[in-house]
């Protein structure tokens, strides 16, 4: 790793101040992606601003109406243990391994927007709102292609709010070496319709499969998606699976998620 200073502010406003002064700074969540990246010398900030010392950014809160709010610096392990919300605790419980889940955070995962990460699928399908130090961003506006989000330089995800949902389920086809999703599909049935979000499959990162949403709005059953074609043009193709294989998995996993929801 190149040399850098590490700061551990305890308040959001102090972190924002550190991230916006003249020293080239980068926020540090749980570090489960950023620290390996630094070790490979793929990033060289002058300063890291750790967000895990900010208590107001931690915790899982449910209100009576079924809305769930999770602090940006909340670990996957805490979400797995405390999120009483369909699909979400199971998703968190199967990220990485136990030691990774004890460090990695929901805000870090979303800000990184890895094309094979699990949380982006949940946030997009559940129509969650990303809360930052400056504003609120709708899920549909947040994800802007792999490793790209609507976040401005130095903007911090302070919380994520998930509206009440009728039913939801996440199906992850595990890439056993990386423990990321080879393909993951999150299906959510809302009062105003079904949303289907796919991770791991596309070169553009997480996306909504609108043909499946339309079909499931008419008939919420696995059969409704069985006859659909998944466009495989922009699917990720690598040594773990071809684009056509991933496209096939998208359909299979969507059917399984609907059956399990």
């Amino acid at each position: 790793m190149y040399e850098f200073d590490l700061e551990r502010p305890t308040r959001v406003e102090d972190a924002v101040k550190l991230l916006s002064d003249s020293v080239e700074s980068q926020p540090l969540g749980g570090g489960q992606t950023l620290i390996p990246t630094l070790k490979q010398r793929l990033a060289s900030p002058e300063r890291l601003v750790s967000l895990t010392g900010i208590d107001s950014m931690k915790g899982v809160f449910t209100d009576r109406g079924g809305t769930l709010r999770i602090g940006g610096a909340t670990t996957h392990a805490e979400v797995a243990a405390k999120a009483a919300y369909p699909g979400l605790s199971e998703l968190a419980a199967n990220i990485g391994d136990p030691a990774v889940r004890n460090r990695g955070t929901i805000g870090g995962s979303l800000a990184n927007n890895d094309p094979a990460a699990c949380y982006p699928a949940a946030v997009l399908a559940l129509n969650a709102t990303i809360g930052t130090n400056a504003r609120e961003i709708a899920a549909d506006d947040f994800f802007q292609g792999m490793f790209t989000t609507a976040l401005e330089e130095g903007e911090i995800i302070t919380n994520v709010t998930f509206p009440a949902v009728r039913t939801a389920n996440y199906q992850k086809f595990l890439q056993p070496a990386s423990r990321f999703a080879l393909v993951g599909v999150f299906v959510a049935k809302h009062d105003d319709g079904v949303r289907v979000a796919v991770t791991g499959a596309s070169n553009d990162g997480v996306f909504r499969w609108s043909a499946a949403e339309e079909a499931l709005n008419g008939d919420f059953s696995p059969d409704a998606v069985a006859g659909l074609d998944v466009p495989d043009g922009d699917m990720i193709s690598d040594l773990h699976g071809s684009g056509a294989y991933r496209a096939h998995l998208v359909k299979v996993l969507t059917g399984r998620a609907v059956a399990a929801a």
Partner: peptide
């Protein structure tokens, strides 16, 4: 490199000492 930090298992190679 798994150690316990405040009772939780973590990978000591993927956490800074200052944290």
């Amino acid at each position: 490199c798994v150690v316990h930090v405040d009772g939780e298992a973590v990978k000591a190679c993927t956490m800074f000492a200052l944290e």
